[in-house]
Design a binder for these strands. Sequence first.
DNA 1: CAGCAATGTTTACAAGCGTAGTCATTACGC
DNA 2: GCGTAATGACTACGCTTGTAAACATTGCTG
Lengths: 123, 123
Amino acid sequence: MAVERISDAEFEVMDCLWQQSPLTASDIAERVPAERKWSLQTVKTLLSRLVNKGAITHEVDGRRYLYRPLLDRENYVAGESSRFVNRLFSGRAGPLFAHLAEREAFSEEDIAEIERLLKEMKK
Amino acid sequence: MAVERISDAEFEVMDCLWQQSPLTASDIAERVPAERKWSLQTVKTLLSRLVNKGAITHEVDGRRYLYRPLLDRENYVAGESSRFVNRLFSGRAGPLFAHLAEREAFSEEDIAEIERLLKEMKK
DNA sequence: CAGCAATGTTTACAAGCGTAGTCATTACGC
DNA sequence: GCGTAATGACTACGCTTGTAAACATTGCTG
């Protein structure tokens, strides 16, 4: 039951709900990243599309809805990550890492964490 | 001159051209991953959209075209990677790595390579 | 009670995408 | 030379996406 693909704009809405839920449509309209400057209507459209896609539900609260995610973030991220790694790095983490190392900055912390994880994996 | 966004289908075509170029439309139709089973026409449409987007060029060869990438893979991958890391991991490579470590399998090789890169980075 | 504000529902509409069909031209085999 | 196959150009068409407006309902305020 893998929930249809979620679009960019829809993702922003999901991300709000992942940070906090349940929320009403206007709650979301307020906390959606400001750069987008969506009208309330736009947010509502996105919400109902997400409901159709099975990514969120709404429960009735008086005369409005409270929305909350069905799809959880962990899961979504996992799906997108493997799509990504497959498409661009033939599914191999090594090359991905090499790329990141070259192009994206790793902070000290990042490196420390990675070393820790590696150590753990080797056990 | 950042080349418009490339769609999924278009990407497959690009990937052919990145492996080998120049190629004719029918070359590409043949080597595009078979699961898609695109008709030659479809491939041609994708090619012309890519030309419009500035991602590839064609040079005339008799009465057909030879296509070759303008956008290079390195660059494209870099762009997509940072989009991806930003969207899902707030731009931090550490968490991404942690996620991959948990969810995707790392092969022995991968691990070895990553350790090598780490060592190198620390110099 | 009358009107306004909030809220969901329906409809819109242009651009992008996946997937081709049709048309016109032309090179090549017979 | 003539038909056929290859090839590019143009057109199509339904679906998704981003972005909303218009409409209907209803609870609240004065």
